[in-house]
Simulated assay, not measured.
Amino acid sequence: MKKMWVFALVGISSIASATDVVSIPRVTPYADGVGTDDVRTKCDWNSKLSENIARSAQVGVSVTDMDASHISGKVLTMKITQVHAIAGGNVTGYKWAEVHGELHDGGKLVGSFVAHQHTMAAWTACGSLDRLGKELGEDIADWLKDPTLDAKL
């Protein structure tokens, strides 16, 4: 009888933890008119952003190829709203990126943010964006611990 209760409790905790998982589409799209053609075609940082969040998160995150509109439960959708990346390291000045995100739970908006990071590191535009994607991923993962509306990260 004792074993049955243990299995029942484990099953309940597994169900509870599964509902706490946040699904994130694998690729973060650019807003219309954001980024040069070179940045959009040669740099893949927007395909790595969700993985950076999942790697840094202390909550359950599932990176998915599914269309966000077909996912039930918690879903974080994001869009790149600004990007400025020119090769040349600190010689060409700051590089920056901004991401807008919304967290929905069962279709209801439960959190939103604008995350902005800048750097002068890396000699290539794509290298700068990779670094920015890691920093943004950490910031967004921290926000997921206690999401709020209209957060500035």
Rank of each mutant, 00 (worst) to 15 (best):
I15E: 05
A31W: 00
K79D: 13
T19H: 14
K79F: 10
V10H: 07
M120I: 02
Y30R: 10
V75Q: 02
G35W: 04
V59N: 00
A68Q: 12
L109Q: 10
A57K: 03
F113P: 01
I71T: 09
K108T: 15
V91R: 14
V110C: 07
N90F: 13
G11V: 04
P25N: 07
Q82W: 03
V63C: 13
R40K: 09
V27D: 13
H100F: 12
W45V: 09
G73L: 04
T77Q: 11
A8M: 09
G111T: 01
A85F: 00
T77P: 14
G88N: 08
K108C: 11
T28M: 13
K48Q: 07
S14M: 15
V39W: 00
M120H: 12
K48W: 03
Q58W: 01
V99E: 02
N46R: 10
W96H: 01
D105R: 03
W45C: 10
G60Q: 08
V10L: 14
L9V: 15
G89F: 04
K108P: 15
A97L: 08
G93A: 00
V22E: 07
N52Q: 08
W45K: 04
V34N: 01
D20I: 08
G35E: 06
K79S: 15
P29Q: 09
T64V: 12
F7G: 11
L9R: 00
H84I: 03
G111V: 03
M78W: 00
K79A: 13
D67M: 06
T64P: 13
I80P: 00
T19G: 12
S47F: 05
H84E: 05
S47M: 10
T28P: 07
D20L: 15
V59C: 07
D67Y: 10
T28V: 12
N46Y: 04
C43D: 01
C43F: 05
Q58Y: 02
V59Q: 07
V61W: 09
Q117P: 04
G111A: 04
N46P: 05
Q82D: 06
H116A: 08
V34E: 02
S47P: 01
S13P: 01
K108W: 06
V39R: 00
H104K: 13
A18K: 07
V22S: 08
F7Q: 06
